[in-house]
């Protein structure tokens, strides 16, 4: 199969995965598009090196993670600390919810998605990496192949990331 046909097929199949990973690392829409193009360019360059026995999904995800990790390392973190509209909304909602429902669960879907992204972007880089892949439904084995770490370490990092994320979500 020709390179550009294969590239098109890969990008179409994994577009959702790539877009989700990108928004987990970058909030700015213009930069998200730049990152998508950067990842696409790196996938194109990597095409000739792809081994047929490897999984395309993990190959594509690894390229995306390398681009995103480099981007995060170069960017000054500008996580908002002042309460945003989500927080205000959450504050009002928390007065009405029962004790069993967490503040996160009390939000509507759109607000939950925004809140989730906001909190993921505040995690440490290695926690961001495992959590975004796990949220995409990847197995420990797949995550370990993407990040080139042991399955044990995936478990350790994921547990820490989940705990940190839950704490951030609960903190509101």
């Amino acid at each position: 199969m020709k390179n550009h046909t294969l590239f098109r097929q890969w990008m179409t199949e994994h577009e959702k995965l790539l877009r989700h990973l990108i928004i987990g690392f970058e909030a700015n829409a213009a930069l998200q598009d730049e990152l998508f193009q950067d990842i696409a360019l790196n996938i194109w360059r990597a095409l000739p090196s792809f081994r047929q026995d490897a999984s395309v999904k993990t190959f594509v995800a690894r390229i995306a993670h390398n681009v995103l990790a480099t981007h995060v390392a170069k960017t000054v973190r500008t996580v908002k600390t002042e309460p945003n509209s989500d927080d205000d909304q959450q504050g009002h909602l928390s007065d009405h919810i029962s004790e069993q429902v967490t503040p996160y669960q009390a939000l509507d879907k759109d607000q939950r998605q925004q809140r989730l992204l906001h909190c993921i972007r505040q995690l440490k880089l290695n926690q961001q990496q495992v959590i975004t892949l796990a949220l995409e439904g990847m197995s420990y084995q797949e995550i370990s192949e993407v990040l080139v770490i042991t399955i044990n370490l995936v478990g350790v990092r994921l547990q820490r990331a989940k705990a940190a994320l839950t704490t951030l979500l609960e903190a509101g």
């Binding site: 590239f7 928004i23 796990a134 949220l135």
Partner: peptide, 22 residues
């Protein structure tokens, strides 16, 4: 969280334009 994450909306890419640009 997993459900919220996986159902996030995303902008569909014009693949022909992407291939050309790449």
């Amino acid at each position: 969280m997993t459900q919220d994450w996986q159902t996030q909306p995303f902008v569909k890419t014009d693949m022909s334009a992407l291939v050309k640009q790449t």
